[in-house]
Simulated assay, not measured.
Amino acid sequence: MDLTLTDEHRQIRRAARELAEREFAEDAFTWHEEYPAENAKVLAEHGFLGMTLPEEYGGGGMGFFDALMAMEGVGEVCPDTALLLVTSNTGNMQIVAKFAEEQYAKKYLEPVCAGENTYVAIAMSEPGAGSAVTDMTTTAEDDGDAWIVNGQKAWVSRAGKSAAFVTYVRLPDGNIGSVLVDGDNPGLEIGDPDYNMYDEPQYSIYLDDCRVDKSRSLVTGPESFKEQIRTYNVNRVMGMAGNWVIAKWLFEDALEYAQHREQGGQPIADYQAVSHRLTDMAINLETSRWLIYRALSGDELPGRALSCMTKVHAGEKLHEVVDSALQIKAANGFVGDTPESYAYRRLRGYLIAGGTPDIHRNNVAKALFKHGYPEVE
Protein backbone atom coordinates (compact mmCIF):
# COMPACT_ATOMS: atom_id res chain seq x y z
CA MET A 1 0.00 0.00 0.00
CA ASP A 2 1.43 3.35 -1.06
CA LEU A 3 0.23 6.35 0.92
CA THR A 4 2.39 8.80 -1.03
CA LEU A 5 0.22 11.62 -2.33
CA THR A 6 -0.24 11.73 -6.07
CA ASP A 7 0.25 14.93 -8.04
CA GLU A 8 -3.54 15.12 -8.37
CA HIS A 9 -4.01 14.91 -4.61
CA ARG A 10 -1.42 17.63 -4.05
CA GLN A 11 -3.15 19.80 -6.62
CA ILE A 12 -6.55 19.36 -4.94
CA ARG A 13 -5.13 20.31 -1.55
CA ARG A 14 -3.21 23.26 -3.00
CA ALA A 15 -6.22 24.57 -4.94
CA ALA A 16 -8.45 24.25 -1.89
CA ARG A 17 -5.98 26.14 0.28
CA GLU A 18 -5.54 28.90 -2.28
CA LEU A 19 -9.31 29.30 -2.51
CA ALA A 20 -9.57 29.43 1.29
CA GLU A 21 -6.82 32.03 1.55
CA ARG A 22 -8.62 34.25 -0.97
CA GLU A 23 -12.16 33.80 0.28
CA PHE A 24 -12.25 32.53 3.87
CA ALA A 25 -9.18 33.80 5.74
CA GLU A 26 -10.70 37.03 7.00
CA ASP A 27 -13.43 35.29 9.03
CA ALA A 28 -11.50 32.08 9.80
CA PHE A 29 -12.49 30.24 12.96
CA THR A 30 -15.29 32.65 13.82
CA TRP A 31 -18.31 30.75 12.48
CA HIS A 32 -18.58 28.01 15.08
CA GLU A 33 -22.28 27.18 15.43
CA GLU A 34 -23.26 29.61 12.66
CA TYR A 35 -23.67 28.10 9.20
CA PRO A 36 -21.14 29.71 6.79
CA ALA A 37 -23.66 30.04 3.97
CA GLU A 38 -21.54 32.39 1.86
CA ASN A 39 -18.58 30.05 2.08
CA ALA A 40 -20.74 27.07 1.12
CA LYS A 41 -21.72 28.83 -2.10
CA VAL A 42 -18.08 29.53 -2.91
CA LEU A 43 -17.11 25.90 -2.29
CA ALA A 44 -19.97 24.74 -4.50
CA GLU A 45 -18.95 27.08 -7.32
CA HIS A 46 -15.48 25.52 -7.29
CA GLY A 47 -16.72 21.92 -7.12
CA PHE A 48 -15.73 21.19 -3.51
CA LEU A 49 -19.20 20.36 -2.15
CA GLY A 50 -20.51 16.88 -2.83
CA MET A 51 -17.20 15.84 -4.38
CA THR A 52 -17.91 12.17 -3.64
CA LEU A 53 -21.55 12.21 -4.73
CA PRO A 54 -22.68 10.99 -8.18
CA GLU A 55 -22.36 13.49 -11.00
CA GLU A 56 -26.01 13.06 -11.96
CA TYR A 57 -26.97 14.71 -8.66
CA GLY A 58 -24.53 17.60 -9.04
CA GLY A 59 -21.63 15.86 -7.31
CA GLY A 60 -18.09 15.35 -8.49
CA GLY A 61 -18.00 11.55 -8.65
CA MET A 62 -14.63 11.58 -6.89
CA GLY A 63 -13.16 9.50 -4.08
CA PHE A 64 -13.15 10.07 -0.34
CA PHE A 65 -9.41 10.68 -0.32
CA ASP A 66 -9.93 13.49 -2.83
CA ALA A 67 -12.46 15.07 -0.45
CA LEU A 68 -9.99 14.59 2.40
CA MET A 69 -7.33 16.53 0.50
CA ALA A 70 -9.75 19.39 -0.17
CA MET A 71 -10.75 19.43 3.48
CA GLU A 72 -7.13 19.63 4.61
CA GLY A 73 -6.47 22.51 2.23
CA VAL A 74 -9.49 24.52 3.39
CA GLY A 75 -8.93 23.53 7.03
CA GLU A 76 -5.42 24.95 7.10
CA VAL A 77 -7.12 28.34 6.77
CA CYS A 78 -10.69 27.98 8.09
CA PRO A 79 -11.56 24.75 9.94
CA ASP A 80 -15.24 25.68 10.31
CA THR A 81 -15.64 25.93 6.54
CA ALA A 82 -13.70 22.69 6.05
CA LEU A 83 -16.40 20.87 8.03
CA LEU A 84 -18.80 21.57 5.16
CA LEU A 85 -16.84 19.02 3.16
CA VAL A 86 -17.67 16.40 5.80
CA THR A 87 -21.39 17.09 5.88
CA SER A 88 -21.75 17.32 2.09
CA ASN A 89 -19.75 14.21 1.24
CA THR A 90 -20.40 11.52 3.81
CA GLY A 91 -22.95 10.07 6.20
CA ASN A 92 -26.53 10.54 5.13
CA MET A 93 -25.54 11.99 1.77
CA GLN A 94 -23.91 8.68 0.87
CA ILE A 95 -26.86 6.71 2.24
CA VAL A 96 -29.32 8.70 0.13
CA ALA A 97 -27.09 8.43 -2.95
CA LYS A 98 -26.70 4.67 -2.54
CA PHE A 99 -30.10 3.52 -1.33
CA ALA A 100 -32.77 6.11 -2.23
CA GLU A 101 -34.77 6.03 -5.43
CA GLU A 102 -33.41 8.38 -8.08
CA GLN A 103 -36.21 10.92 -7.72
CA TYR A 104 -35.45 11.42 -4.04
CA ALA A 105 -31.68 11.36 -4.42
CA LYS A 106 -32.00 14.11 -7.00
CA LYS A 107 -34.43 16.13 -4.88
CA TYR A 108 -32.31 16.14 -1.73
CA LEU A 109 -28.71 15.94 -3.00
CA GLU A 110 -28.73 18.55 -5.76
CA PRO A 111 -29.36 21.46 -3.33
CA VAL A 112 -26.57 20.20 -1.05
CA CYS A 113 -24.10 20.09 -3.95
CA ALA A 114 -25.21 23.59 -4.97
CA GLY A 115 -24.32 24.99 -1.56
CA GLU A 116 -27.86 25.75 -0.48
CA ASN A 117 -28.55 25.94 3.24
CA THR A 118 -30.12 22.51 3.47
CA TYR A 119 -29.24 19.10 4.80
CA VAL A 120 -30.38 15.51 5.18
CA ALA A 121 -30.27 14.66 8.89
CA ILE A 122 -29.91 11.31 10.60
CA ALA A 123 -32.65 10.26 13.02
CA MET A 124 -31.15 7.26 14.77
CA SER A 125 -30.70 7.78 18.53
CA GLU A 126 -33.61 7.69 20.92
CA PRO A 127 -33.98 8.77 24.55
CA GLY A 128 -33.50 5.14 25.62
CA ALA A 129 -31.25 3.99 22.77
CA GLY A 130 -28.05 5.97 22.25
CA SER A 131 -24.94 3.91 21.61
CA ALA A 132 -27.10 0.78 21.84
CA VAL A 133 -28.92 1.62 18.62
CA THR A 134 -30.46 -1.83 18.36
CA ASP A 135 -32.56 -1.07 21.46
CA MET A 136 -34.64 1.43 19.45
CA THR A 137 -38.41 1.31 19.75
CA THR A 138 -39.47 3.46 16.77
CA THR A 139 -41.63 1.23 14.58
CA ALA A 140 -42.72 1.13 10.95
CA GLU A 141 -45.94 -0.81 10.48
CA ASP A 142 -46.89 -2.15 7.06
CA ASP A 143 -49.94 -0.39 5.60
CA GLY A 144 -49.93 -1.59 2.02
CA ASP A 145 -48.11 0.97 -0.08
CA ALA A 146 -46.84 2.91 2.95
CA TRP A 147 -45.16 2.58 6.34
CA ILE A 148 -46.85 4.02 9.42
CA VAL A 149 -44.01 5.29 11.60
CA ASN A 150 -44.34 5.96 15.32
CA GLY A 151 -41.65 6.91 17.80
CA GLN A 152 -39.29 9.60 19.03
CA LYS A 153 -35.75 10.42 17.97
CA ALA A 154 -33.34 12.44 20.07
CA TRP A 155 -30.20 14.60 19.64
CA VAL A 156 -30.80 15.17 15.94
CA SER A 157 -28.27 17.70 14.65
CA ARG A 158 -29.25 20.29 12.02
CA ALA A 159 -32.90 19.22 12.11
CA GLY A 160 -33.97 22.84 11.86
CA LYS A 161 -32.61 23.15 8.32
CA SER A 162 -33.05 19.58 7.14
CA ALA A 163 -35.13 18.81 4.10
CA ALA A 164 -35.42 15.14 5.07
CA PHE A 165 -34.46 12.60 7.73
CA VAL A 166 -32.81 9.22 7.30
CA THR A 167 -34.95 7.58 9.96
CA TYR A 168 -34.03 4.25 11.53
CA VAL A 169 -37.06 2.08 12.33
CA ARG A 170 -37.87 -1.39 13.54
CA LEU A 171 -39.70 -3.16 10.74
CA PRO A 172 -42.52 -5.71 11.17
CA ASP A 173 -40.04 -8.58 10.66
CA GLY A 174 -38.03 -7.34 13.65
CA ASN A 175 -35.10 -6.09 11.57
CA ILE A 176 -33.86 -2.52 11.75
CA GLY A 177 -34.12 -0.64 8.48
CA SER A 178 -34.54 2.96 7.44
CA VAL A 179 -36.91 5.22 5.57
CA LEU A 180 -36.49 8.70 4.14
CA VAL A 181 -38.98 11.02 5.83
CA ASP A 182 -39.57 14.43 4.26
CA GLY A 183 -39.27 17.40 6.60
CA ASP A 184 -42.86 18.41 5.75
CA ASN A 185 -44.30 14.91 6.12
CA PRO A 186 -47.60 14.96 8.08
CA GLY A 187 -47.13 13.31 11.45
CA LEU A 188 -43.53 14.55 11.80
CA GLU A 189 -42.96 17.22 14.42
CA ILE A 190 -39.63 18.85 15.21
CA GLY A 191 -39.27 19.91 18.85
CA ASP A 192 -37.58 23.03 20.20
CA PRO A 193 -33.80 22.81 20.14
CA ASP A 194 -31.56 22.08 23.09
CA TYR A 195 -28.04 23.46 22.83
CA ASN A 196 -25.09 21.22 23.52
CA MET A 197 -21.78 22.23 25.10
CA TYR A 198 -20.45 23.89 21.96
CA ASP A 199 -23.72 25.70 21.27
CA GLU A 200 -24.96 23.49 18.45
CA PRO A 201 -28.74 23.09 18.45
CA GLN A 202 -29.94 19.50 18.72
CA TYR A 203 -33.54 18.44 18.40
CA SER A 204 -36.01 15.76 19.27
CA ILE A 205 -38.33 14.72 16.48
CA TYR A 206 -41.67 13.06 17.04
CA LEU A 207 -43.35 10.68 14.61
CA ASP A 208 -47.04 10.15 15.27
CA ASP A 209 -48.76 7.89 12.73
CA CYS A 210 -46.37 9.37 10.18
CA ARG A 211 -47.32 7.86 6.81
CA VAL A 212 -44.27 7.32 4.59
CA ASP A 213 -44.64 5.98 1.07
CA LYS A 214 -42.76 2.72 0.55
CA SER A 215 -40.92 4.27 -2.38
CA ARG A 216 -39.03 6.13 0.35
CA SER A 217 -37.67 2.91 1.85
CA LEU A 218 -33.88 2.95 2.03
CA VAL A 219 -32.84 -0.45 3.37
CA THR A 220 -34.98 -3.36 4.55
CA GLY A 221 -34.46 -7.06 5.15
CA PRO A 222 -32.21 -9.23 7.36
CA GLU A 223 -28.98 -7.44 6.38
CA SER A 224 -30.47 -3.93 6.31
CA PHE A 225 -28.82 -2.59 9.45
CA LYS A 226 -25.38 -3.94 8.48
CA GLU A 227 -25.67 -2.51 4.97
CA GLN A 228 -26.41 0.97 6.19
CA ILE A 229 -23.83 0.99 8.98
CA ARG A 230 -21.19 -0.20 6.48
CA THR A 231 -21.94 2.86 4.38
CA TYR A 232 -21.93 5.03 7.50
CA ASN A 233 -18.44 3.83 8.57
CA VAL A 234 -16.77 6.35 6.30
CA ASN A 235 -18.65 9.13 8.08
CA ARG A 236 -16.90 8.25 11.32
CA VAL A 237 -13.52 8.47 9.62
CA MET A 238 -14.27 11.73 7.82
CA GLY A 239 -15.69 13.15 11.03
CA MET A 240 -12.36 12.46 12.69
CA ALA A 241 -10.62 14.05 9.71
CA GLY A 242 -12.70 17.18 10.31
CA ASN A 243 -11.56 17.20 13.92
CA TRP A 244 -7.99 16.68 12.74
CA VAL A 245 -8.00 19.91 10.74
CA ILE A 246 -9.28 21.77 13.80
CA ALA A 247 -6.62 20.24 16.06
CA LYS A 248 -3.89 20.94 13.48
CA TRP A 249 -4.94 24.58 13.28
CA LEU A 250 -4.73 24.91 17.07
CA PHE A 251 -1.35 23.16 17.13
CA GLU A 252 0.09 25.63 14.62
CA ASP A 253 -1.30 28.52 16.65
CA ALA A 254 0.09 27.10 19.91
CA LEU A 255 3.48 26.47 18.30
CA GLU A 256 3.76 30.10 17.21
CA TYR A 257 2.39 31.37 20.51
CA ALA A 258 4.92 29.38 22.56
CA GLN A 259 7.82 30.88 20.62
CA HIS A 260 6.68 34.46 21.27
CA ARG A 261 5.00 34.36 24.67
CA GLU A 262 7.61 35.16 27.32
CA GLN A 263 7.58 34.19 30.97
CA GLY A 264 10.58 34.47 33.29
CA GLY A 265 12.49 36.39 30.65
CA GLN A 266 12.34 33.73 27.94
CA PRO A 267 9.84 32.25 25.46
CA ILE A 268 7.79 29.52 27.07
CA ALA A 269 8.87 27.20 24.24
CA ASP A 270 12.30 27.12 25.90
CA TYR A 271 10.81 25.33 28.89
CA GLN A 272 11.07 21.57 28.48
CA ALA A 273 7.55 21.00 29.78
CA VAL A 274 6.13 23.12 26.96
CA SER A 275 8.43 21.75 24.25
CA HIS A 276 7.56 18.18 25.25
CA ARG A 277 3.87 19.04 25.17
CA LEU A 278 4.23 20.39 21.63
CA THR A 279 6.14 17.24 20.67
CA ASP A 280 3.37 15.01 21.96
CA MET A 281 0.81 17.10 20.10
CA ALA A 282 2.71 16.59 16.84
CA ILE A 283 2.99 12.84 17.45
CA ASN A 284 -0.73 12.56 18.16
CA LEU A 285 -1.57 14.54 15.04
CA GLU A 286 0.69 12.42 12.85
CA THR A 287 -0.50 9.02 14.12
CA SER A 288 -4.12 10.12 13.78
CA ARG A 289 -3.51 11.47 10.30
CA TRP A 290 -2.01 8.25 8.98
CA LEU A 291 -4.74 6.13 10.47
CA ILE A 292 -7.27 8.36 8.71
CA TYR A 293 -5.25 8.13 5.50
CA ARG A 294 -5.14 4.36 5.67
CA ALA A 295 -8.88 4.10 6.27
CA LEU A 296 -9.67 6.27 3.25
CA SER A 297 -6.92 5.20 0.87
CA GLY A 298 -8.51 2.07 -0.61
CA ASP A 299 -11.13 1.66 -3.27
CA GLU A 300 -13.52 0.04 -0.78
CA LEU A 301 -15.21 1.64 2.21
CA PRO A 302 -13.30 1.07 5.46
CA GLY A 303 -14.45 -1.97 7.41
CA ARG A 304 -15.69 -2.01 10.98
CA ALA A 305 -12.32 -2.66 12.62
CA LEU A 306 -10.42 0.09 10.81
CA SER A 307 -13.17 2.72 11.06
CA CYS A 308 -13.66 2.00 14.77
CA MET A 309 -9.89 2.06 15.42
CA THR A 310 -9.77 5.45 13.74
CA LYS A 311 -12.73 6.74 15.74
CA VAL A 312 -11.15 5.64 19.03
CA HIS A 313 -7.55 6.68 18.45
CA ALA A 314 -8.15 9.93 16.59
CA GLY A 315 -11.03 10.94 18.85
CA GLU A 316 -8.98 10.55 22.02
CA LYS A 317 -5.62 11.79 20.72
CA LEU A 318 -7.02 14.84 18.96
CA HIS A 319 -8.84 15.79 22.13
CA GLU A 320 -5.47 15.62 23.90
CA VAL A 321 -4.01 17.94 21.26
CA VAL A 322 -6.73 20.51 21.85
CA ASP A 323 -6.36 20.17 25.62
CA SER A 324 -2.63 20.83 25.30
CA ALA A 325 -3.23 23.85 23.06
CA LEU A 326 -5.51 25.21 25.76
CA GLN A 327 -2.88 24.53 28.44
CA ILE A 328 -0.16 26.33 26.46
CA LYS A 329 -2.37 29.37 25.85
CA ALA A 330 -3.56 29.24 29.50
CA ALA A 331 -5.89 32.16 30.33
CA ASN A 332 -5.52 33.51 26.78
CA GLY A 333 -7.18 30.34 25.54
CA PHE A 334 -9.57 29.82 28.44
CA VAL A 335 -11.21 33.23 28.86
CA GLY A 336 -13.72 34.47 26.30
CA ASP A 337 -14.94 33.03 23.02
CA THR A 338 -11.60 31.55 21.98
CA PRO A 339 -10.83 28.93 19.32
CA GLU A 340 -9.51 26.69 22.08
CA SER A 341 -12.74 26.90 24.05
CA TYR A 342 -14.88 26.13 21.03
CA ALA A 343 -12.66 23.30 19.78
CA TYR A 344 -12.36 21.73 23.22
CA ARG A 345 -16.12 21.54 23.59
CA ARG A 346 -16.64 20.37 20.03
CA LEU A 347 -14.10 17.57 20.12
CA ARG A 348 -15.35 16.43 23.50
CA GLY A 349 -18.74 15.95 21.89
CA TYR A 350 -17.20 13.73 19.23
CA LEU A 351 -16.20 11.29 21.95
CA ILE A 352 -19.95 10.74 22.31
CA ALA A 353 -21.39 11.34 18.84
CA GLY A 354 -21.34 8.41 16.45
CA GLY A 355 -20.75 5.95 19.28
CA THR A 356 -18.49 6.30 22.31
CA PRO A 357 -14.90 4.98 22.35
CA ASP A 358 -16.11 2.23 24.69
CA ILE A 359 -18.63 1.00 22.14
CA HIS A 360 -16.09 1.19 19.33
CA ARG A 361 -13.55 -0.74 21.36
CA ASN A 362 -16.20 -3.45 21.70
CA ASN A 363 -16.68 -3.34 17.91
CA VAL A 364 -12.96 -3.65 17.28
CA ALA A 365 -12.76 -6.64 19.61
CA LYS A 366 -15.65 -8.37 17.82
CA ALA A 367 -13.99 -7.78 14.47
CA LEU A 368 -10.68 -9.11 15.75
CA PHE A 369 -12.30 -12.25 17.14
CA LYS A 370 -14.03 -12.84 13.80
CA HIS A 371 -11.44 -11.74 11.23
CA GLY A 372 -8.17 -11.24 13.09
CA TYR A 373 -5.82 -8.30 12.72
CA PRO A 374 -6.63 -6.09 9.68
CA GLU A 375 -3.49 -6.59 7.60
CA VAL A 376 -2.35 -4.18 4.91
CA GLU A 377 -3.14 -5.58 1.47
Rank of each mutant, 00 (worst) to 15 (best):
217 S>E: 15
37 A>C: 07
228 Q>A: 10
29 F>T: 12
306 L>S: 02
140 A>M: 06
102 E>C: 04
232 Y>W: 15
274 V>D: 00
340 E>P: 02
151 G>K: 00
9 H>K: 11
342 Y>G: 00
42 V>K: 14
76 E>V: 06
149 V>E: 06
295 A>W: 08
188 L>Q: 02
226 K>Y: 08
244 W>G: 00
66 D>E: 07
188 L>D: 01
369 F>G: 06
139 T>Q: 03
359 I>G: 06
118 T>N: 10
215 S>H: 08
247 A>M: 05
217 S>R: 05
241 A>Q: 01
246 I>T: 04
263 Q>R: 06
11 Q>V: 09
40 A>Q: 11
144 G>V: 07
358 D>W: 09
211 R>F: 04
122 I>F: 06
49 L>R: 12
325 A>H: 05
341 S>L: 14
372 G>S: 01
258 A>M: 00
149 V>R: 05
133 V>I: 15
85 L>N: 03
123 A>E: 06
269 A>K: 03
294 R>T: 10
22 R>G: 11
54 P>F: 07
277 R>M: 15
17 R>M: 06
75 G>T: 11
309 M>R: 09
292 I>R: 05
32 H>K: 12
284 N>T: 07
370 K>E: 14
17 R>E: 14
351 L>V: 03
255 L>K: 01
271 Y>M: 00
43 L>A: 10
217 S>K: 04
362 N>L: 12
80 D>G: 04
156 V>P: 03
68 L>R: 13
23 E>N: 08
93 M>V: 14
66 D>I: 03
130 G>S: 11
261 R>A: 05
216 R>M: 07
111 P>C: 12
339 P>V: 07
97 A>H: 11
163 A>F: 09
370 K>D: 14
299 D>V: 10
152 Q>D: 05
58 G>P: 10
